[in-house]
Design a binder for these strands. Sequence first.
DNA 1: TCCGTATTGAACT
DNA 2: AGTTCAATACGGA
Length: 166
Amino acid sequence: MKNQFIQLSIATRDGQFVARYSEKGLAELDFPMVGRASLRAVQANGIPAQIRGWHRTTTSALESILAGREPENFPPLAPSGTAFQQSVWRELKKIRFGQTKSYGEIAQRIGKPKAVRAVGGACGANPIPVLVPCHRVLAANKNLGGFSGGLDWKRSLLAREGAIFR
DNA sequence: TCCGTATTGAACT
DNA sequence: AGTTCAATACGGA
């Protein structure tokens, strides 16, 4: 039972997101579930005050982005992944609100200019979409590329930020 | 070890 | 302007 996340939901007008916290911070964020039964992801009691605080910050950051505004604060992010993935995600966080970068640019900035495909793989493995802005990464020709949460989400998020893409 | 990938740029129709 | 194709790093099975 090593990874016992504490799971809390975030209701937005775009649906119910689910956030999972480790003792280090926000570990995962899920898009609203499409079909049936969004899990009742709430524990009423026994949530440490620290995590409740993080969750308030997460909620407000998420709501800001969904409303097309740049968040003022972020919770501590604690995604689990390989060293390579961590370095990619660290780089993603540096992309400013409303800006985009290509997979190749990310690869260069982490010092592995030829690891372009691997960067794509790391983006797809990102457990904290939206807050770790994997949606701001486009293909070299400014085409959309892919998105694990569905391309509609990627289009929508970029549009709300006023980013330029095709 | 083999396979797929959210890539890329060049070489071809 | 569209299509094919090899190079290439990484992660999962």
